[in-house]
Amino acid sequence: MAKVRGAVIVDTEVCKGCNLCVVACPTQTLALNRNVNNKGYHYSYMENPENCTGCTNCSAVCPDSCITVYRAKIE
């Protein structure tokens, strides 16, 4: 059976670590990284990439438009 799988790319230097995408993610894919970017923000990243369905909820709430979303059907 085909499964919908997703993945996101976070532009970590643009991310301000506001956490809104983490809260909006229905599959607990995203989390804030322990590391910080050059501005000192804990940027968002896929902590559990296997959970991602590519639903675009994260990119929808992102105030800094730093999330790109991909989705594919995997056999």
């Binding site: 993945a7 643009v14 301000k16 991909y70 989705r71």
Partner: peptide
């Protein structure tokens, strides 16, 4: 495998430029 152009479902609009916004986090 997933991150391929044909699987793109959301990317920043080209009408929005690449400048990092001056707004506070979460604004």
């Amino acid at each position: 495998e997933i991150i391929k152009p044909e699987n793109l479902v959301y990317a920043k609009s080209p009408v929005l430029n690449d400048d990092i916004m001056h707004y506070c986090p979460g604004c």
